[in-house]
Design a protein around this nucleic acid. Structure first.
Length: 496
RNA sequence: GGCGCGGUAGCCAAGUGGUAAGGCCGAGGUCUGCAAAACCUCUAUCGUGAGUUCGAUUCUCACCCGCGCCUCCA
């Protein structure tokens, strides 16, 4: 079964076939780096990350490009306000975005920055003007002439023929031919940053960067273009207008849009007090793996309600997966195989693939892995799993994790890095550090050596049936965040 | 007003024209020196009304409710 994806352009779920055999070229609209990324941003980036990972797992050679919008009105304004250059202002948040992405196990795409393509944008606009799609106004700004591009509205399904100028647009603000015409290039404003280019001084409009950079990195026509649902209009509609009027080719074949999330049942907004960055959540003591898991639980086209209950629930689910792997990797199995178990592993892998092929149905895929867990754990309890079966189960689990990426237990160092960041930021941020975070990341951690020392002491005590001493050691370890399990295969431990 | 999405157990959330995955939480139980892990059992008739059908949660219509985009926004 081939991958099927919903395509905003056609409004249908379609079979996905790359233009160029086995190569997939995809472009995702990345962050505007004027602040720390919030969980809504990361829902989108994680959804696209899943798509990227699944395409690769499916055998495609994927070229995945993401832009960093490091110039826009807000950035220029904030930089001016703070008395720093645009570059200085954005460097910090670009870095933060990269760190946050790494913390969430988002794989790094090929990143391209708007400010490194200003001249190409000017050139692109000059070509549009030459072809009659763009015009210059007296103040030195450039606009796209929508009337010249009849397909305008095809992505967002808007009918511009019936729209009246002035309804919701301030017609008087600029001397545009039509209120719907959008800015390609904005003339400088006093006291704000601008670039000197072949088409004059100024700064690029928002949409032009993606047209320029996607074409440069992927060619005039490529497979997938992704982003948050809000970008459908006007951003992507405008990209299409710019790119296609110049190239005469279809910009992207598939348009992949991720739905907005809700937080505690409401649209995330600073005024509702439900606006959270990744760092806010970690400061509250939530693990990155819980956050990633919660954000992948609901298929990307459905509204996801992000709640703190859900976050706790996600933590338990991830624990369950990790425990299962721990069990598989720390148990001594008898040689040979049990066909029923090997078959279970194979069928589960197939179920997962088939769920993801179905427009990335992550909920279905997760259901499948937990079905396997329950059955396999039952078999493990009954000693019916042999060495080859354990390998097969592990292979399926790891294949699952190639997509979801929550198994690796590295939350502690990641949380520590956020803790250090908050302390370095100063007292305002430091105040947000929760006891929960300190417990996981901030307490003095025992080294593996110390732990093993205590474990052997504990084992000795248990052998001599000195349970009082054994319990004391257990408590000591538990307080240090170490969970010790005594199984028939011996002792094993993990960090909380 | 235009376009679109959704309402499934305490919470989150899949899914199908033939009586409903999974996760979390809760209760009880098994195992266990303790603990942990794991397993078992229990907890829904799918917003409301009508229609189509042998049969609808799944299709159609109406209504109610929630949400998104149409303006900066992932």
């Amino acid at each position: 079964m081939p991958l099927r994806l919903y395509n905003t352009l056609s409004g249908k779920v379609e079979d996905f076939h790359p233009i160029d055999a086995n190569r997939v070229r995809m472009y995702a609209c990345g962050p505007t780096v004027y602040d720390y990324g919030h969980i809504g941003n990361f829902r989108t980036f994680i959804a696209v990350d899943l798509l990227y990972r699944f395409l690769r797992q499916s055998g495609y050679d994927v070229r995945y490009v993401m832009n960093i919008t490091d110039v826009d009105d807000k950035i220029i304004r904030n930089a001016a306000r703070d008395g720093v250059t645009v570059q200085q202002y954005t460097a910090k948040f670009t870095q933060a975005f990269l760190e946050d992405s790494a913390i969430l196990n988002i794989e790094k795409p090929l990143l391209v920055r708007a400010t490194e393509h200003i001249d190409e944008m000017a050139d692109f606009i000059a070509q549009l003007e030459k072809k009659g799609f763009a015009y210059r106004t007296d103040d030195g700004s450039y606009y796209f002439r929508i009337a010249k591009f009849p397909a305008y509205g095809k992505l967002s399904k808007k009918d511009f023929a019936g729209m009246t100028d002035g309804a919701r647009v301030d017609v008087d603000e600029y001397e545009k031919d039509s209120a719907r015409d959008f800015a390609l290039w904005k003339a400088p404003k006093p006291g704000e940053a601008f670039w000197e280019t072949a088409i004059g001084p100024g700064r690029p409009g928002w949409h032009i960067e993606c047209s320029v950079m996607s074409m440069e990195e992927l060619g005039p026509s490529f497979d997938l273009h992704a982003g948050g649902e809000d970008l459908i209009f006007p951003h992507h509609e405008n990209e299409i207008a710019q790119s296609e009027s110049l190239s005469g080719q279809q910009l992207a074949h598939d348009w992949f849009h991720v739905r907005f999330l809700l937080v505690e049942g409401q649209k995330m907004s600073k005024s509702f007090g439900n606006f959270f960055t990744l760092r806010d959540l970690v400061l509250r003591g939530h693990k990155p793996s819980s956050i990633r898991w919660l954000l992948t639980q609901v298929p990307y086209r459905n509204q996801l309600n992000f709640t703190f209950d859900g976050l706790k629930s996600a933590a338990s689910s991830v624990e369950k997966l990790r425990n299962f792997r721990f069990r598989l990797t720390s148990t001594q199995f008898a040689a040979g195989s049990n066909p029923a178990i090997t078959q279970l592993a194979g069928e589960t892998a197939a179920r997962i693939t088939s769920a993801l092929n179905d427009d990335l149905n992550t909920a279905e895929a997760q259901g499948a892995i937990f079905d396997m867990l329950r059955k396999a754990n039952t078999a493990l309890d009954a000693d019916e799993v042999h060495n080859d079966d354990a390998k097969a189960l592990l292979a399926t689990l790891e294949k699952f994790d190639e997509i979801f990426s929550v198994l690796k237990d590295d939350d502690q160092p990641k949380m520590k890095s956020i803790l250090d960041w908050a302390r370095a930021e100063g007292t305002e941020k430091a105040k947000e550090i929760s006891p929960e975070l300190l417990e996981i990341a901030g307490s003095t951690q025992l080294s593996d050596e110390q732990i093993n020392q205590k474990l052997s002491e504990m084992e000795a005590a248990r052998k001599s049936r000195n349970f009082k001493a054994s319990d004391a050691l257990r408590k000591e370890l538990t307080d240090a965040g170490i969970i010790v399990e005594n199984t028939k295969d011996g002792v094993r431990w993990r960090r909380k």
